[in-house]
Structures are given as C-alpha cells and as structure tokens.
Amino acid sequence: MIVRSLRMLWHFIKRLLHLLASPVRRNRGRGGIMVHPYRGYGSQQEAFVMGRVFRQTMLGRAIPRHGLLRDIADVARRIFRCGLADTWVGVYIGENQHQTVTDRDGYFDVRVPLEHPLPIDVSWHRADIWVRAEGQTPIRTQVEVFVPPPEADLLIISDIDDTVMFTGVAEKLKMLYRLFVKKPHRRTAFPGVASLYQALHRGESGKAERPILYVSRGPWAIYELLEAFFQLNRIPVGPILFLREWGISWRHPLPRRAEDHKRDLIDRMLALFDGLPCVLIGDSGQHDPEVYTGIVKAYPHRIAAIYIRQVGSDPQREESIRKLQRELAHTSCDLILAADSIKIAEHAFENGYISVRGLQAVKRDVAEIHIA
C-alpha cells in the first residue's frame, strides 16, 4: 500500500510538472520577450483584448528536449519569467486601433472603441497585436475576438467549476488531481452539457450566435487546458477570459475572493451588453446562488433565468437555495435548482431560450451517458 501510494504521488508530481511546463515548452527553449494574448470579446461599440508580455530565460543546450529534467527546467523558466512593465502594446481590429502600456506585472487589457463598424456577417474577428519593447525588434501576434451579431437576443454567463465540468470543489485533493493531472478529455464534463450550451448558443431559431462567457475560480495558468477541454467535449468555445488572477508573486501571495471577482465581471458584462437579457449558470457548491440573487436585485428585469446545478446532497444547502427561490418569486427571474442538464433544458425550452431540437439533443446525450 505504501509503495503504491508513493508511485501515485510520483505520478502526480510528474504530471503536474509536465502540465505546468507545457506553455513554456512550445517555444522550444528560446528565450527573450514573449507575448501571450487571450481570446477577446466585445459588443458592436467596443472590444477588449487581454494578454501578457514577459521576458523568459533561454533553455541551456545541456538540457534534453524531453523528459523530467526538461519539465523541471521549463517550470523553473515559467516561475522566474519576468513581466515587462510599461511596454507599448498596439491592438488593431479592422480599421480600429488603440494603444496602451503593460502594467507592473506585464499584463495589458486594451479597450478598442469600434468607431469603424466590423462586418456583421461574422462573429469572430482577428485582432493584430504589436508589442514594442525598448531595444527589441517589434513582435507581432494575433488573437480572435468574439463580437455577437446585432440581432443577438440573450447573453449567457456561466461558471465552469462544478457547472460545466466535474472538479469536486468540496473535495480539494480530488479537485487538484482533476485540475492539474488528468488530461483535458479525462476531466469529465457533466452529461448533456455540450448539447445544452450549443442549444443556448444557437437559440430558438437554431441560427443565433449568442455570446457565452465563462468564468472560473482557477488561475490564468490553466487557460490553455480549459480551451482544450472545451474543444474536446464539443462545448461552444467562448472567451474564457475571466479566470481569477491568483497573484502568485512575492507582492501578491493571495488570490481575490471568488465571489467578488464574479460579481465584478457580471457587472462589467451587463454594462457592455446593455439591454441584452442575461442567463446566469452556476452550481450549488459555492456562492453562485447568493451572488446571482444579488445581481437580480441590482438589475431588475435584466436576468431572465438562473440555473444552478445541484452538487452534493446537503439538506441545509438545499434549503438555503430554496429560500433564495422564495426571495425571487415576485420577480421575472426563475431560479432553477437542477440535478441534471435535462431540467435546465426543459425550462429553457418552455421559455423560448432553446429549440425543440436542442432539447431533444440534451435528452439524447444524457440517455447515452446513462446507457454507457
């Protein structure tokens, strides 16, 4: 038993190192200034692009290209990479442009006013990013920006952890194992999630392109892993922009509170997509029901529905959510506590948020999982 436990621990350590090293590994040992942009988002009036500019050390020739030693070296390079402060960044989307400089940790968050309208026959647009660091050749990279069409009729904001995928927040060790060790396709999505989110994205007509924005309690370091997970599980890939900055640095050793982070971003999105009704999706394990109820009270008539995925079987927690349901009973927003994706899909269909085809797809996918 002890030997097996040690082997599992060793496997955990190796997989963790390999995962943490992966974003660094792809530059093939090259050092110098790097730019990592994150997928952007926007409305018809403005767009936002975020990313980081940093300096990374070069990998020595004595280090092998593969194996544990390479992973250790790449993790060390990642830990000691240095964000470049006050570095010029220019973002160009169509004929629109805006410049900024990075903050003290090398991050940039550019708001680009869309004075020149973007084509409305497509939703994903290319943003060109130029970075000019002192004494260096300018660096150019690109990233996608999602701008919903003018006829978009609904905004969806969804949690990720224990809402889209199993993470076991209540069981911290299991969460860490699933988050940092399992491959993306092994981090199981909840049954019916892919078809549910596809149905919400496409709407009642089946042709809508509604914005879906995802939020996670995890750090920016897992951004690429989440993207791979979404693609492998056929979940509509929206801007996974709202990961919490954990601040793992000597200056900021602790992360922001997750509920404060979530409330701030929802306020920001409701302002950006002013006028669009919104559906909020979360889980019962943390503070989503309380945060979302506060949003409904602050924005009367903006929140169309709240869907809370039930995780765990704590009677006290269920009763606290029932109490929130009673608080919202006099509003136009339904708070639905659902044990599976079917109940969410049925309510969404009854209220015209998804098509009958979308409802059938959710039921079919859940049934296939149960048969398997």
Rank of each mutant, 00 (worst) to 15 (best):
P119C: 09
V311G: 02
R81S: 15
K262L: 09
P191L: 02
R52Y: 03
I160L: 14
E346K: 09
L173C: 03
Y353T: 01
V53Q: 03
E327M: 15
D267T: 04
R202S: 13
D105I: 05
R78Y: 11
P255S: 07
P64A: 13
T87R: 00
L276C: 06
I336E: 04
E346D: 15
P277Q: 06
H330Y: 15
A194M: 02
G40C: 02
A271K: 15
F108A: 04
T188G: 02
Y197T: 02
V131G: 03
W124S: 07
T57I: 13
T163L: 06
L59F: 12
V75M: 10
L243P: 00
L328R: 07
R111C: 06
D334Q: 15
A304L: 05
P149N: 08
E224K: 11
R104Y: 08
V24S: 15
E350S: 12
Q325P: 08
V356H: 14
Q44D: 09
L155G: 03
G67F: 07
G192A: 11
L19Y: 14
G238I: 04
R251D: 13
Q310N: 09
H116P: 02
D334V: 08
P289Y: 05
D274T: 11
P149W: 03
A298W: 02
R39M: 11
E95F: 06
R111L: 14
D274W: 05
R178Y: 12
A304Y: 06
L173T: 15
R7Y: 10
L118I: 07
P117T: 10
L6P: 04
F242K: 00
P253S: 10
S5Y: 13
L276A: 04
A258V: 10
D109M: 08
I79A: 14
E171R: 15
G168D: 15
V362S: 13
A329H: 12
R52V: 00
Y292M: 12
N96D: 05
G51N: 06
F108K: 05
T102N: 08
V311F: 08
V110H: 06
E209V: 04
A329R: 12
I222P: 00
C82E: 07
I79N: 11
R111V: 05
E144C: 02
G285S: 09
W10K: 08
G275Q: 08
K183D: 12
D314N: 12
D274I: 01
R55A: 15
V143E: 08
E346H: 12
F273M: 06
A62H: 07
Y107D: 13
R111G: 02
L179K: 11
P64Q: 11
P150V: 03
R268C: 05
I371F: 14
A338G: 11
R25H: 07
I79L: 13
W10M: 10
V110K: 01
L179G: 07
L84H: 04
G285F: 01
A189F: 07
V291C: 04
Y299G: 01
R28L: 11
T293V: 13
E115A: 12
S313Y: 03
D109I: 00
D105E: 11
L20D: 09
V24L: 04
P119K: 15
A298Q: 14
T100P: 01
R39T: 05
G94N: 11
E259Y: 07
L232P: 01
